[in-house]
Simulated assay, not measured.
Amino acid sequence: MFKTPIVITLLTFLIACSSMKEAGVVYHDGFDFSSVKSYSLYDRNSTFTEAQGLLDTRRNAIEIAIERSMAEQNFNYAELDETDLIVTYHLVSGSRKDYAKYNEVVRFCTFCLQATTWKTDQQYSAIRRGSLIVDLVDPKQGRSVWRSVYRLDLEDRENSAETNDRIKQAISAMMAKYPR
């Protein structure tokens, strides 16, 4: 009598755990990631922010998740003019124009992935609607040196706690791929 609900619950957890998403990562092997001690985020009034079409609540959730994940990896927050890396992000809406504008702001070249200076630890999948992109930008060059993509697929019916948990999980999985 009680066995069926228990079995169904266990199967649900098993399926949920087995469907954990992987974060795809590419990075430039000419950048010295081991020397990075600090990070920063772009100000809200920057060109970067203009390339985003995010509500403040979603932006806040992503930035808080980034700050927590960076702190867990012992990176310190610094001002933009004193930082080793700038962390940027983009939630893909499906608009090629928005995606191209974001790539232009972080100076990420998708064609350059074919170059031998870019490495990948995980399969770098195609960017699709609902994907969250995190870039680490070298402030000296003003160019992305590391990118991770995670299929976030947020749904409108999710409450803010569920959304925030999924964002935290995504950022944590992405930043776990940081090259040391």
Rank of each mutant, 00 (worst) to 15 (best):
T57S: 07
T116C: 01
E72K: 08
N45Y: 06
K97S: 12
V134A: 01
S160N: 10
Y99F: 14
K168F: 01
S148V: 07
C109L: 05
Q73E: 05
A100G: 08
D121N: 11
G30L: 07
N164M: 08
P139R: 08
S160L: 09
S148F: 07
L152P: 01
T120Y: 00
Q123F: 13
K21V: 13
L14V: 04
E79Y: 15
G142H: 06
A126E: 09
N74R: 08
K3M: 11
E162C: 02
V149D: 02
S34G: 00
G24Y: 13
R128P: 03
S18Q: 15
V149Y: 09
Q123V: 12
A65F: 04
D84N: 10
F33K: 08
M70I: 02
F108L: 10
V149H: 06
I171W: 03
A126V: 06
F108R: 07
G142F: 09
G24A: 10
I15A: 08
A71H: 03
I171K: 01
S40K: 09
A71Q: 00
M70W: 07
G53E: 11
S38T: 15
A100I: 12
V26C: 01
N76I: 09
V36I: 10
A23G: 03
L41R: 08
E82V: 06
A173V: 04
P5I: 09
W146K: 11
T110R: 13
T117M: 05
L132Q: 06
D32M: 05
V36K: 08
D153C: 04
R143E: 11
D43Y: 12
Y77W: 07
K140A: 10
A78D: 12
T12R: 02
V25H: 07
Y42A: 10
F33N: 08
Q122K: 14
T57R: 09
K101A: 15
H90D: 06
G53D: 14
I62E: 01
V36R: 08
I133D: 02
A61Y: 00
S18L: 14
S35H: 10
N103S: 14
L136W: 05
R59P: 00
